[in-house]
Design a protein around this nucleic acid. Structure first.
Lengths: 177, 177
DNA sequence: GCACTCATGTAAGGAGTTACATGATTAG
DNA sequence: CTAATCATGTAACTCCTTACATGAGTGC
């Protein structure tokens, strides 16, 4: 049982999902490719933490919705009490930003403008998502007991970070323009 | 040549370093263990991108300072022009934060208090580092042409992110206390 | 005495990425 | 007619972590 396994269980507590959907949802705290997700889901099913439900679809491929079992939820609860390992972030852009004096002003500006538009798009999508949560759940978002609370605060955090990234990029761009 | 190889080259442009020192300095944009760094340094030396300098020390182990070569710097410059790959961040804490409704209030509070003190320490250290840069370089920090500029902006960014993390933790703690 | 820092390396195994494979539907 | 979305899987490979190995000096 690695971190990704618990990330999948955590996602499936909220609602049953397909592997394809999990790959998208996981973006908020643990990026993973489908090639890593599908075999792990099969393993978790085999371990009794998940049960699959086959959904027949017309006009698009059939899918498997995975439901978390009682054992799956218990395993997640036990893991919750252990101290989390230190966060890792690996970002090629930052290596390039660090080495900015090696390139010309145009390349440097391009690098930061691309970064800026990447995060502007991210912020835009996440603001929409949070608005949808607010419309659906209202004051329940602030209730620590409610299941949505965890999802809300984690997306809120990601939004704050993305907004900070934008502010920083703009600050750098004022200096290099 | 993977991202870590370029991260090492980027660090060595500023000044020659030992593998041990690189492992510490790398924290700002690409965390890596010494077991990954030492063999890579040997490989980069073999490829002609680095030259080692043996430093004899008394009272502590001898060390190898790696210097970047002209070819090393050129290889880094060429890589700079390629679009950076998307950033990845993997954080067990966020899986636990997402699943917060599964635990009791005390465990939840402990989780966030530990996170808070971890980042307060980080911010403290980085503020000191930035103050040292300001004392040494003054207005040169704002000069995009100067070699220190890249290092300054990357640490500034990391500081902003760590401060945001603290603000977010405090916001969550007001709700769960 | 015990843990920590400085310092460098290797070996084994687990985690993660890229590429291979398939295929219908929809939007530009 | 081309690319993107939905959807699942495997194989090969690279990347990263954990553990093994050594050893002097410093602080509690």
């Amino acid at each position: 049982m690695n971190s990704l396994a618990y990330a999948l269980l955590a996602m499936l507590v909220r609602k049953p999902c397909s592997g394809y959907e999990l790959a998208e949802l996981l973006e908020v705290f643990w990026q993973a490719k489908h090639s890593q997700i599908y075999p792990l889901l099969a393993k978790l099913e085999n371990d009794g933490y998940l049960t699959p439900e086959n959904i027949e679809q017309t006009g698009r491929p059939n899918k498997k919705l995975y439901h978390i079992t009682h054992e799956g939820k218990e395993a997640l609860k036990v893991w919750m009490d252990k101290a989390p390992s230190v966060p890792v972030s690996r970002d090629e852009f930052l290596i390039k930003a660090y080495s900015i004096s090696l390139t010309d002003a145009d390349t440097a500006r391009g690098l930061f403008e691309d970064r800026l538009s990447y995060y502007k798009d991210k912020v835009h999508r996440r603001e929409k998502l949070i608005q949808e949560m607010e419309a659906e759940f209202g004051p329940q978002l602030m209730d620590q007991e409610h299941q949505i609370f965890g999802r809300f605060i984690v997306h809120r955090r990601k939004l704050l970070m993305e907004q900070q990234e934008i502010a920083w990029c703009e600050w750098v761009l004022t200096m290099i323009s």
